[in-house]
């Protein structure tokens, strides 16, 4: 059975591309453009992997990550952001599985996704 990946990304085009790319790789993809909707999905059923943007219109990716880690410390979370902050980096290094800075090389991202899914099994 294909793994479910939750993509939380507010940039319409980029989330679209990402969803297509992951679907092409035979993953089950749920895409959300804001934090509230993303949290709803997480509460309903924890996905196998989460690709998380930091800057979202309602709540931040950091808050979502904190929420996820309350319930599940194992689910792989890949931070995919345009924000580079040394302060946040320490936090993500501790709680996220990988940090990828935009613009993203799709092959690199797919590689990380594959690796993290394998690790979490």
């Amino acid at each position: 059975m294909a793994e479910t990946i939750l993509v939380v990304e507010d940039t319409k085009y980029f989330s679209d591309i990402l969803t297509d790319e992951l679907k092409d790789c035979n993953y089950n993809v749920i895409t959300k453009n804001n934090g509230t909707d993303a949290l709803k999905v997480i509460e309903e059923k924890m996905p196998d992997l989460i690709i998380l943007d930091v800057k979202l219109p309602d709540i931040t990716g950091t808050e979502i990550l904190a929420y996820i880690r309350q319930y599940d410390t194992n689910v792989p979370v890949i931070i995919c952001t345009a924000v580079t902050s040394t302060k946040l980096k320490t936090y993500y290094d501790r709680w996220a599985n990988a940090v990828i800075i935009k613009p993203v090389d799709l092959d690199l991202l797919l590689g990380v996704v594959k690796k993290e899914l394998e690790k979490s099994k």
Binding site: Y13, F14, L18, E21, A82, I101, K102, P103, L106
Partner: peptide, 12 residues
């Protein structure tokens, strides 16, 4: 970076 991510990923 955000629009560039879309541009680059689209091209890829």
């Amino acid at each position: 970076r955000n629009p560039m991510a879309s541009i680059r990923a689209s091209a890829q």
